[in-house]
Design a protein around this nucleic acid. Structure first.
Lengths: 308, 308
DNA sequence: TTGAAAGCGCTACCAT
DNA sequence: ATGGTAGCGCTTTCAA
C-alpha cells in the first residue's frame, strides 16, 4: 500500500504538501505544476489515505457501527439495509457486527468498535444485561438502541408500540369470537418452537395463535403443517413478521408489520444529532407505529376445531 | 476514552510498562505490586486499547471485511452469518458492507476497507467491472470472491456449479414432459419482474419456470397468483432459492439450494490461508455442489394449461 | 508557494 | 524490573 511519503517522493515534494493538496478546498496557494505532479503520483501509485492514521490524527472516523443479534432474520437485515443507505448518504461508512444473540459477543463488539474510533453506535441489544451500555453512557459515547430497549435505563431508542399492536391483534381475534388465544414467543431454534407448540396444541388447543417474530412464525407454520391443521379453518394465526413472503405462504398471513425502513432512518438521524452536537443532548425514546395487515389466516371461531 | 497514558499516570508507571503488562504472555519480569496497580487502573478507567493505533503500529488489524450486494436477501445474509461466526472463532472481527448492487459503492468500500488496514476481504461482487479488483491483486492484497466470479480474471473464489444445477433442473422438467420452459432471471425490483413475467406469460405461456434467486422467486409467485394460475396444475416451478420458508409457500417449492454455511466457511478459511502465508499462494477456485430439493411445485405436463 | 515538526495512541527495542 | 524513544501514516500550525 502506497503512503503519503511514497507519493511525495514520486512527486518530489514534502509529504505535508501532498496532504495539503489532497485536502484542499478551493483556493489553496499551490503551483499548477506541483499539483499536477502530485495528482499524477497519486494515480500512478493508486494511493488511498490510511484511514486509521487519519482517524487517529483527526479524532474522527466518519464511521458508525451497527450491532444486530441476527443477520439472517429479515427483520434486522432490513433495518441494517436502511441504516446502511442512510449513513452512506450522509458520508459515513457503516460497519455491521452480528452478536448472534450472544451477550458476550455483544460486549466484545461494543468494546471493539468503540476502541476503533468509531463515531457512534446503533445497537439492537441481546438484552441479557446492560452494564456495558452503562459504561458507554458514562463516557458520553453516542449510541442509539433499536427495536429493544431497557425500561429502567434511559438511552436513545427507536422502538415500536408492541403493547398497542398486541392489544389490537388480540382484539381482532376476540372480535372474531376467539376465546382461547395462545401467545408464542421466545428465542427459538425452529425445532424447539415446533416441539413446544406441538405440546401446547396437544394439551390445550387454542383457536388462535399470536406469534412474535419472523423465524418463530415459520417454525409455527411447520408445526401446524405437521399436525395437519388447516389455517384458518382449524386455527387462526397472526404473526409479528415483516417477511416479504407472507402473502405467498400456505395461508396468506395476517401480520403486524414494522416500519423497518423508517426505524433505521430515525435511528441514524438521531445518532447523527448526538454525534454532531458538542453539548450533551437529552435522550430521545421514539416509538414508531406498527400496522396490522389483514391476510387470510384469521377467521371467525365458528366451526373451528376446539380440541384435537 | 482513556488512553495508555491515563492508565500509566493513575498507576504511576511509564506507558510502555502498561503496554508490556497488557500484552504479557506468561513470565514477564514485573513486580506483583506494579502489575496490580496497572490492572486496577485499567479497570478503574475502563481502558480499551485504541485499535487504530495498534493496527497502525503492528501493521495488522485482525479484521476482515465482507462486501455483499444485498443484506436483505437471505442468500447473502446467510453467507454473512457463516463468515461472521468463522472469523469470530478465529479471533478476527468481521466488518460487513453492503454495496446494494451498486458498482460505485462497491469500489468505494473496497478502497475504504483496505485503507482501514483491514487484513483481507471477501467480496460478492456486483460484477459490472473488476478493474478495482485488478488493482487489489496487483498490490497482493488478499481477497476471496464468493458466489460470483469473473471467468477471465483469475482470483480466489468460492462458487457453485450453477451450470450443472441448471442442467439438472431442466432435465427434471423435461422428464416430466415439459417442452416450453422459461428461465427467469435478472436484478429485479419485484415489480419489474412481475410485469415482465406477465408479458411473457401472455405472449408465450410456458408450462414450466426456472427462476434464479430469492427475491425474483417471490416476485414470480406474486405474478402467478395475480394471474390466477395454479401451481403445479397450470405451471411448474423450480426456484434457485435458499429461503427457509419455501416449504410453507402456497405451493411447497422445488428448489435448487446452496450450501451457504459451507461456502462462508470455505471463503474465510481460504482467505485466512492467504493472509497468513508470507509467500504468494496460488489462487483457488472452489466449486461447491448445489442440491435439488423436491417440493410440490413441479408436476407432469399432462393436462397443463398450454395457452391463456 | 512549500518545508519542517509535533503529535494522535500504541508497541518494540534498547537502556539502565 | 522499569523507563525512554522511535516511528506506524497522517494533518496542522508555524516558519521560511
Amino acid at each position: 500500500m502506497a503512503t503519503l511519503k511514497d507519493v511525495a517522493a514520486l512527486a518530489q515534494v514534502h509529504p505535508s504538501t501532498v496532504s495539503r493538496v489532497l485536502r484542499s478546498t478551493e483556493n489553496l496557494p499551490i503551483s499548477d505544476n506541483t499539483r499536477r505532479r502530485i495528482m499524477d503520483a497519486v494515480k500512478e501509485l493508486d494511493y488511498h489515505p490510511d484511514q486509521r492514521a487519519r482517524a487517529l490524527r483527526l479524532g474522527k472516523s466518519n464511521t458508525v457501527g451497527l450491532i444486530i443479534p441476527d443477520i439472517s432474520n429479515s427483520f434486522f437485515a432490513n433495518i441494517a439495509k436502511s441504516i446502511e443507505e442512510e449513513s452512506y448518504n450522509a458520508g459515513y461508512t457503516l460497519v455491521v457486527c452480528v452478536s448472534n444473540e450472544d451477550q458476550e459477543k455483544e460486549v466484545h463488539f461494543v468494546n471493539n468498535l468503540t476502541s476503533r474510533g468509531i463515531d457512534g453506535l446503533v445497537i439492537a441489544p441481546v438484552q441479557d444485561s446492560y452494564s456495558h451500555l452503562v459504561r458507554l453512557k458514562k463516557k458520553k459515547y453516542p449510541f442509539v438502541l433499536i427495536d429493544r430497549c431497557f425500561e429502567e435505563f434511559e438511552t436513545n431508542a427507536i422502538i415500536s408500540d408492541n403493547e398497542t399492536s398486541s392489544f389490537e391483534a388480540v382484539e381482532h381475534l376476540v372480535n372474531l369470537g376467539h376465546k382461547r388465544i395462545a401467545f408464542l414467543s421466545g428465542r427459538p431454534t425452529i425445532y424447539t418452537i415446533r416441539k413446544r407448540l406441538d405440546g401446547y396444541l396437544n394439551a390445550q388447543p387454542p383457536t388462535a395463535l399470536l406469534i412474535s417474530g419472523n423465524r418463530i412464525t415459520f417454525g409455527a407454520l411447520k408445526a401446524i403443517v405437521e399436525k395437519n391443521l388447516k389455517i384458518p379453518d382449524d386455527i387462526s394465526i397472526i404473526g409479528f413478521t415483516d417477511s416479504i413472503v407472507t402473502p405467498y405462504l400456505i395461508s396468506p398471513l395476517t401480520t403486524i408489520t414494522h416500519p423497518l425502513r423508517d426505524m433505521g432512518i430515525r435511528a441514524f438521524q438521531l445518532l447523527l444529532q448526538h454525534m454532531n452536537s458538542r453539548e450533551t443532548l437529552p435522550f430521545s425514546r421514539i416509538v414508531v407505529q406498527t400496522k396490522m395487515v389483514l391476510g387470510a389466516s384469521t377467521a371467525s371461531v365458528n366451526g373451528k376445531l376446539l380440541h384435537t
